[in-house]
Each structure stands twice: as C-alpha cells, then as structure tokens.
Design a protein around this nucleic acid. Structure first.
Length: 593
DNA sequence: CGGTAAAGCATA
DNA sequence: CGTTTATGCTTTACCG
C-alpha cells in the first residue's frame, strides 16, 4: 500500500492542497469530510478496514492530479500512527492540536479558538513502553477509546476547530508566514510518526562492545568490573572503605573529611582539585552515567530487532523544538553514535548545519555584514575576518554570549565588540531581551509567540513597585526580569532556528519519496514498515538529520538534504543572501570523527 | 510506601 | 580565553 512516487518533482509540503477532515461519528467510527472553498462537499463513513484503503486511494489520486491532499485530524500521533501501522503513508497533514497551541498564543484576538479549551494540553497517545503503535480499532471506538479525551475527535468538533483555526490565521500578524508555520509543524508531526515507525537502525552488538570496552565485563548483581575497581580506588584514596559513591551527600562529606574543599560533587568543581581520589572519581562518574542512562538496561528496553524507537514530541519545547519522552533520543551521548549503524547494503547519510542559530539571526535582522561573515563554511572565521574579534575561539564565545545573554566573564566582555560590528543583528536580540524584561511577548520569524510572564515574574514586579518595597524586593525583581530577558532573547533565535529545521525536515522527507523503493531480499532492511524499503528519515536532533538509505541512493539522499536546506532558506528568508552549509557524511554509521 | 524535588550530566 | 539558552532521564533524598 505504498503511495506511488512522482517521477520528476517532489510534492511540496507547503502546497495549497485539497483538505479532507478525518473525525469520528457518534458510535466512534471514522468519517471523512471533504472541504473546499465553498465548504463541505461530501461525507463518508469508513470502517476501520476501509479507512486505510480509502486514504491510500485518495492520496494516490491527489498525487496524480498534482494538487495533493492535506489530511486534517485532531492528532497525528493518534491518526497517522494507526495509518502507518496499516502500511499507509501520506504527504501532507494539518495537526489541529499542534496548530491550536501555536495559534492560541500567537493570535490573542481569536477568542473562539481560545475558548475551545478541549484542544489544550497533551495528545492522547500510546505510552512510551507500550511498544505497539496505535491500532485502527482505537479510532473506531472499540479499543481503548474510553481512555481518550472526549469531544476532540468528533467529526463535527474537528471541522469546527479547523474553521476556527482558519479564522485565526486570517487575523495573524502575517497570515502567510503563519500558514507556513502550521504546515511545517504538521509536517514535523508526520516525520516524527514515521521515524518512530521506521526506527533508528541500531547495532546492539556494537553498543554492547562500546559498553564492555568502557565499563568492563558485566557482572551479575553488581557494578561492571572497571567501575568496581575505580570505586575501590576512590575509597582507598579517601580512606573511607564503606563509602557509597553513588550518593552525592555522602560522597561530599567523605571528600570534605579527606580535606578536599568542595561545595558540590559536580565534575567541573572536582576538576579543579588535585588529589589522588579525583581522577578515579571523575572516571567512575563518567562510567556510572553511561551505565545508568544508556547501559544494558536501556538496550534491553529500547532496542528491538535492530531498531531504536524513540518517542518524539513535536512542538514539545516552548521554542518549537521537539522534545522526547522515553528513550532519551535527544540526549544520546556521542560515545554511542557508532551504534547507529546502517543495515547491510544501506548507508547512513548524516547532515548537520554549521552554526544554524547565528545564521538565522543574521537573516532575521537583515544584517548584511553578518550574512557576509557567514557566507561559505565557517561563520566564526568570518567574524574574525570582519574584524570584530581576534580569534575563532573568541568569536564563538561572543556569539553564544550574544544569543544567550551573557553579561559576565569573557563572554560578556566580548559581546559589545560584536555589537559594534553587527549592530542590526545585536539590535534584534537586544530588543527581544528588553521586551521580555518588561513583561512582553516576542515572536519568531514565522510567528510562534513566547508565553506571557509567569506568576513568579508578576509577583516579583508587583512587590518591587509597591510603595515601601525593600531594596531586596527591587533586586529580586530586577534579577527575575533579567532572567526573563535572557529567555526571550534566546527564544526568537532558537525558535526561528527550529522553524528553519522543520522546513528542512519537511522538504527532505518529501524529496526522499522520489527515490524508488528497493525490493525485499538482499539489501532490504532487516525490519520496519513497508515505506522504510526506500531512503527514509531515521533521526532528527534540532539541527541534524540522519537518513537511512540504500547504498545506491546514498548520494541522491545527500543531494536531497542539500537541496532541501537551500529551499528552507529561501522559504523563510526569500532572496536575502544567507546560506546554510551542511556537514554531510555518508558512512556505515553515524560515528563522528 | 508512593510521589516529588534536587543533583548531576547528557544533548543542541 | 566561559557556565549564559532550551531540554530528559536516573538516582538519591525527603516528605506526607
């Protein structure tokens, strides 16, 4: 039930396609409602067996006519996971729950939308350990439907919410940009569901080898060999044979008893100390972290049949970045990247954007000099060449300080030099910080809007502005204000970078559908759904995309990644001369050198 | 005993 | 040449 690939051009994620709403009727069965400009024109009940067949047929028709379909549903995590489980893939969607969250904050005048509070909050979704994806029967009311939020999947409510969202988009500050944002957000949800279904190709034996090399042999009922030995060295050096190293308070007391003057057991504080206990202790902590976070227990829980299946949460971070739940997909240590390994006959095509955030800042601010410094490979070298600072290391610290709001140390000292050379870029982040300090909201390039100040901010400001406020109240209000300023300063940059990355991901996803599937048999993936028989997205991490591709399509996949990056830049910033160069690697694994 | 906070560290 | 943004996860400590 593959959707056919078009020969020449990939479908656009942004196209103004025909919309078909999927919802549930009173008995819980699926219903499709076709909408065009004049309104509803056709309604069709679908049994749980008809649904995937019908969706697949409409999708194929849409591809053939060139106009395409945009599927509108309450939640991609629920509806699309079920369709994928039945082997059906779609090109475009509109995820009402995700788009509701964006519009609610971005268009405060859309009161009908704000009042539809059933759309707030988390989606009904399968738990991370459930393993099984959603069943179609859940959508037709026979399964765990009782546990789902009522009132959101109903077809009337689904159509009503879409109309509220259409009205809200029209009221947005920049409706065109908002449409792009909603399409990007929804495309990201499709990609997340597909990546979960396909899984990250994961070599459990290689992972096990990394663990044994680092930790030593596995011991039943105890810590691995090397950890046990390091722990003994630490106890010996501290003269405390019974010390429990895993307990920070006990460890801290033991360190202090041994005459080591530290206030915490953190590695950056310990790193300053010269004492025979320190080296084995730091090594022990490093290994303990590896064991508990990504050790054999993680492998047993999260890797099955050569695939790691993380749970992505699109839009899970206020800035629009994805979050994850279970599996820790967004915190995979670099040490384990080598276990992300292609199937036999396949390749890992890994791409990441060099210095995405400052490039995005240059483009948003229309800062020509900063864009010039960014042209080519390394933005930090460009900043040195522009004369702002003397070395690449200084440039990096200065740029991070500018985007994070550093005020102290070398970072804070270097930021003013950046301000002299790139006044437009700095004015943008400085203004965002000022707005945040004053309690205002800021928006990304496409219009995602930061949350309003929280209760702590309002309470602190209120206390400080009373007559008779103490100096302590004023200091506290100032500090909380600055904290919020650093948040909004970073929000506009991190959020716009997330938009660029979503646009990139969405475009890559559809470009890859141009590549033909490979036959089962030799070179076919070891496991996974039918759509994963061709080059497919395997991993996404803020500014990095990994594609799993048949060896013969690896170069084409790399080209798709490059073309999509260029397209994303043009989509967001038009003709403004900013480029987004990629680090591209084609290899058997995702290990970095 | 169960739920939550905090520490600490991994990622961008 | 620095610790400033956003997260998730595991462990221990602590509270009712």
């Amino acid at each position: 039930m593959e959707t056919p690939s078009s020969d020449a051009s990939a479908p656009s994620p942004w196209a103004d396609a025909e919309r078909i709403v999927l919802g549930r009727d009173a008995r819980g069965g699926a219903v499709a409602v076709a909408l065009d400009r004049g309104g509803e024109h056709g309604r069709r009940p679908l049994s749980s067996t008809e649904l995937p067949v019908w969706v697949s047929a409409r999708e194929a028709e849409g591809a053939a006519t060139g106009r395409g379909i945009r599927w509108v549903w309450s939640s991609t995590a629920a509806w699309y996971s079920a369709l994928l489980g039945a082997g059906v893939r779609v090109s475009r969607a509109h995820d009402l729950r995700l788009c509701h969250a964006v519009l609610r904050d971005a268009v405060p005048s859309a009161s009908a939308l704000r009042e539809a509070t059933a759309w707030d909050g988390a989606p009904a979704e399968a738990g991370p350990s459930a393993g099984a994806l959603f069943e179609l029967d859940d959508l037709s009311g026979n399964g765990a439907a009782g546990s789902r939020r009522p009132g959101r999947d109903g077809v009337a409510e689904t159509v009503a919410e879409l109309l509220r969202q259409d009205a809200a988009v029209a009221q947005a500050a920049h409706p065109g940009r908002m449409r792009l944002l909603l399409a990007a957000e929804s495309a990201g949800a499709l990609a997340a569901a597909e990546m979960r279904a396909a899984g990250v190709p994961w070599d459990a034996e290689h992972h096990d080898r990394i663990l044994r090399d680092a930790l030593g042999d596995r011991r039943a009922g105890g810590a691995p060999a090397r950890m046990t030995r390091l722990a003994a060295e630490v106890r010996e050096a501290l003269g405390d044979p019974a010390l429990s190293i895993d307990s920070p308070p006990r460890l801290l007391r033991a360190l202090q008893r041994a005459g080591i003057r530290v206030e915490s057991t953190s590695k950056w504080e310990l790193g300053e100390i010269e004492h025979p206990a320190i080296a084995p202790l730091l090594e022990y902590k490093r290994l303990a972290r590896l064991l508990t976070a990504n050790g054999w227990a993680w492998l047993d829980e999260w890797v099955r049949d050569g695939r790691f299946r993380p749970v992505y949460i699109p839009g899970g971070v206020v800035t629009g970045r994805w979050a994850s739940s279970g599996g820790g997909a967004l915190q995979l240590p670099r040490q384990l990247r080598g276990a992300l390994r292609a199937d036999p006959g396949w390749r890992i095509v890994a791409a990441d954007v060099a210095q995405l955030e400052p490039r995005v800042l240059a483009a948003m601010a229309r800062d020509e000099r900063m864009a010039e410094a960014a042209r080519g490979r390394d933005l930090y070298e460009g900043i040195v060449a522009a004369g702002a600072v003397r070395t690449r290391a200084e440039a990096k610290i200065a740029v991070l300080g500018a985007m994070y709001g550093a005020t102290t140390g070398d970072s804070g000292r270097l930021v003013p030099r950046l301000r002299r050379v790139f006044p437009d870029a700095m004015a943008l982040v400085d203004a965002a910080a000022r707005t945040g300090e004053e309690g205002g909201v800021v928006t990304t390039w496409l219009g995602r809007t930061s949350p309003p100040p929280d209760d702590a901010w309002r309470a602190a400001q209120a206390r400080a502005s009373r007559s008779g406020a103490s100096p302590a109240d004023e200091t506290r209000a100032l500090r909380i204000g600055r904290d919020r300023g650093r948040f909004t300063r970073n929000y506009v940059v991190q959020g716009t970078a997330a938009e660029w990355a979503l646009a990139w991901l969405a475009d890559v996803r559809l470009r890859l559908t141009r590549l033909a599937p490979v036959d089962s048999g030799e070179g076919a993936p070891r496991s996974g759904p039918a759509f994963a028989r061709r080059a497919h997205l395997a991993f996404f991490l803020h500014d990095e995309v990994i594609v799993h591709a048949p060896a013969e399509h690896a170069d084409a996949a790399a080209e798709a990644l490059r073309e999509a990056a260029e397209a994303a830049g043009r989509l967001l910033f038009g003709a403004f001369p900013i480029d987004f160069p990629l680090d591209l690697r084609i290899s058997d694994s995702a290990a970095k050198d």
